[in-house]
Each structure stands twice: as C-alpha cells, then as structure tokens.
C-alpha cells in the first residue's frame, strides 16, 4: 500500500501545449480559471470541511507533491454544491445531493468516533482507509448517523465519483496518466498501435521494461 506512486510519463506536462494549436481560447479560459481561481468554502461547515479534506486526501493521496502543488479537490466539490450545479440523478433511496453530502460527511465523522473515539480527520491514514472501506462494504456502526443514507451508494456514487471527476480534469492528473488533454483545433494524426504524434506524451516508462 505504501509504495510511492510513479507516473509512466515523468517528463510530460499537458500544459506545455498551452500556446500550441491543441489549446483554443475557450479551453485556456476554462483551465486557466481552474488553476487560478480556486473557490472559497461556502457550503460545508468547518467540521465537515475538515472531514472532506481528509477524505479527499485518502481517495487521491498526493504525497509526492509539495503541499502547494497538490490538486485541490474539496473546494470544487463545495462550489458545485453551493452553486446547485446538479448531477442529473438523485437515487430514490437517497436525499438530495446537498443533504446527502452534509449528512454523509457527518456520518463518516460519527463512524470514526464510534470506532476509534476520534474525529475522522484526526485518525492515522491507514485507519482512515479502513473506515472508508468499511463504509464501502456497508459495514457501519454509527447507525443513526446513516439513517436514510445508504453508505455504499453514498461512498461510491457521490464521494468517489465526484472526487475523481474533479481530480482527473486537472492538468496534473491528465499529465500523470499520459492523456493528450485539450485537442482543438488540432487533434491527432497517428491513430495506430504505439503510434505517437510529436505533441503527445512520449512513450511511457512501464514497470518491467528496461528503462531504469
């Protein structure tokens, strides 16, 4: 579990294409705002916010990045809920997204206190992981805190889903998986197996291949 994360594409940065034909004006506007205008907390209260930060840190741990280089996730979750952005779906066995998130973060915290006598944010990382795995298994002990909120559905379809939907649109995440990223007006020419355009990530360094 504790082996460090290593991207196959250590030299690739999708933002190097910023001034190339891969980026059009509207894409620069959108991604520029994502990088420069991280929204303030407006929706969650301070305790929920601390829990959320801790959850994001376990779902997408970023130990290899300096603190100020880490991709912010919680602020965008907060902003989407504050702005009532919507997801299109509310499962009939769940409250609205806004109520589910607040209740769910409170319930994660309650789960930590029932199991370990501490707030979730105060637990060690491996203990936090165990709490989240238990929730994903539907094995919850803070019964009342979960009333009307199915733990597994909450964890997978709101927590995990919305966190990865924010993380993997960040240029740092695009770069670490070798995704081509923005591509308009210029797309791609080489579509075949192992065929790489010059404006894509160079071939990855894969475990077991002689790149050391």
């Amino acid at each position: 579990m504790s082996t460090p994360f290593r991207t196959p594409y250590p030299t690739y940065n999708v933002l190097d294409k910023w001034d190339s034909p891969s980026f059009n004006d509207q894409t620069r506007e959108v991604i520029g705002r994502r990088l420069d205008e991280v929204p303030p907390r407006r929706f969650f209260d301070a305790i929920q916010w601390a829990t959320l930060l801790a959850v994001c840190n376990r779902v997408i741990p970023q130990p290899e990045r300096r603190h100020d280089e880490r991709v912010p996730i919680a602020p965008w979750l907060d902003a989407a809920l504050h702005e009532r952005r919507g997801t299109g779906t509310r499962y009939a066995d769940m409250p609205t997204d806004r109520r589910s998130w607040k209740q769910g973060l409170d319930a994660i915290d309650a789960e930590a206190r029932v199991r370990h006598g501490l707030r979730f944010a105060a637990l060690a990382a491996d203990v936090q992981d165990a709490v989240l795995k238990a929730i994903d298994d539907g094995d919850v002990r803070a019964g009342e805190a979960w009333a009307g909120l199915p733990p597994k559905r909450f964890f997978r379809h709101l927590v995990l889903k919305e966190i990865v939907r924010i993380y993997y649109v960040h240029p740092a995440a695009m770069s670490e998986v070798g995704y081509g990223g923005p591509a308009s007006p210029r797309g791609y020419v080489r579509l075949g197996v192992d065929a790489i355009d010059p404006w894509e990530a160079p071939r990855g360094r894969w475990p077991g291949e002689n790149d050391e």
Binding site: P8, V59, D136, K152, F155, L160, Y168, Y179, G204
Partner: peptide
C-alpha cells in the same frame, strides 16, 4: 472504475496510470 469496484487511494491512481495501455 470507482462506482463499480470502490477502488480508491494509491490503488486507484496506479490503475488510472494504465490509461494509455
């Protein structure tokens, strides 16, 4: 991946790093 398997953490980042393969 996450809604079907519940994977998270470094496991998730490692699996996503296989994206191009």
């Amino acid at each position: 991946m996450v809604t079907n398997s519940g994977v998270f953490g470094m496991d998730l980042r490692r699996r996503m790093a296989n994206y191009n393969r």
